[in-house]
Design a protein around this nucleic acid. Structure first.
Length: 348
DNA sequence: AAGCCGGGGGA
DNA sequence: TCCCCAGGCTT
């Protein structure tokens, strides 16, 4: 048996039962694929179930507001996926009459659908012979064929795509593509794979060369940036607060948060009061208290956010405040959601 | 080509 | 602590 035959045989026996498995409905496959971009299956499943229940068809998603979609996406990260998901749903509804394109190129034109996702939808839904190359496939191919190119280099990307195309099973592309990804996720795992139990071990180059531990190769990641966030948690006499929407580029675009003062280092009480004063607030101050004396460190893959929540009590609100219950209906970063939970526990 | 974009889980 | 996850977009 050759490579693809082994993969297909292994898949037949070992495939997991997943909510979207077996479906060829492009809406459901597209939804699952976007949710699973850079996301573990176990983390994505509850979101997939929420989305198909809330929006049974692409038109339902298209008719929702972006804020509603972001709220359902809250906690999953990479929020551009949610914004693009919503935009793509509108494209399908308005430009394609609610019917997904059935070609690789057509799918690639949808927002948030790149090479991988277009290949996945085209092959799984329409049996289009396009190879998928995700993180699992890179690992399986790099090890089995002993490829020394970095998977995130331009040359590596081209090489692996070509190799994937050469070894795929054109006639059974639907199962083969899902099979090689499943094989990477279950058998050929990143760390300490059980090669003794692997049906492909005899012909695996990395195993014979004792290089399973250092393949696939990957170029160094970007370094983390440290930032200091000071959130202004207004609390008026009638228990209302203020949220504002993040605009422009950067993390959490279009999500909501408390008014923010960013500093280059941790602010003291007087330091915060000075920066707060510079905002030219016209509120009637009662008190300013630091909620968390020790900064909350919110760690993202590329930023460490050292965060202080300053509780600013006021008399009346000239601006349009909201209640803390209402705050829970806004799409917010996990950092804010966590604070809201602990704040309400200690103050109410 | 390189940087940016989240959050969580495993070792 | 580091690495990875059914990647894509922007510059």
């Amino acid at each position: 048996m050759n490579f693809s035959e082994e993969i297909l045989k292994w898949y037949q026996v070992n495939k997991r039962s997943l909510p979207w498995r077996g479906s060829t409905d492009p809406y459901k496959i597209w939804l699952s694929e976007v949710i699973l971009q850079q996301t573990r299956v176990v983390q994505g499943i509850p979101y997939y179930l929420k989305f198909v229940e809330t929006y049974p068809e692409v038109g339902d998603l298209a008719r929702a507001s972006e804020a509603e979609v972001l709220k359902l996406w809250q906690g999953l990260g990479y929020y551009s996926r949610a914004r693009n998901l919503h935009a793509a749903a509108k494209m399908v509804s308005e430009q394609y009459g609610g019917v997904f394109p059935e070609t690789y190129g057509g799918l690639l034109g949808l927002k948030g659908v790149g090479d991988y996702t277009a290949s996945a939808i085209a092959s799984i839904c329409f049996n289009v012979p396009e190879p998928v190359v995700d993180g699992n496939v890179y690992r399986v191919l790099a090890r089995y064929f002993g490829v020394d190119l970095a998977i995130n280099s331009t040359e590596g990307v081209k090489y692996f795509k070509k190799l994937a195309r050469e070894v795929m099973d054109v006639g059974r592309i639907r199962d083969y593509n899902q099979g090689i990804m499943e094989f990477g996720a279950i058998q050929c795992v990143p760390k300490s794979p059980d090669c003794e139990a692997c049906p492909l071990s005899e012909s695996c180059v990395a195993l014979q060369m004792k290089r399973v531990g250092d393949l696939p190769l990957k170029l160094k990641k970007t370094k983390v940036r440290s930032r200091y966030f000071n959130y202004i948690v207004f609390v008026s006499k009638d228990g209302r607060t203020v949220l504002e929407q993040r605009k422009g580029k950067g993390i959490w675009e279009n999500l909501w948060q408390f008014p923010l003062i960013e500093s280059t280092q941790k602010l003291s009480q007087s330091g915060f009061e000075r920066r707060f004063g510079e905002l030219n607030q016209t509120v009637d101050l009662v008190s300013i208290d630091l909620f968390n004396p020790e900064a909350i460190v919110h760690k993202l893959s590329h930023q460490h956010l050292y965060t202080s929540f300053w509780v600013v009590r006021t008399k009346e609100f000239p601006m349009d405040g909201i209640s803390f219950e209402e705050a829970d209906t806004y799409p917010v970063p996990v950092l804010i959601a966590d604070f809201l939970r602990s704040f309400k526990k200690s103050y109410f």
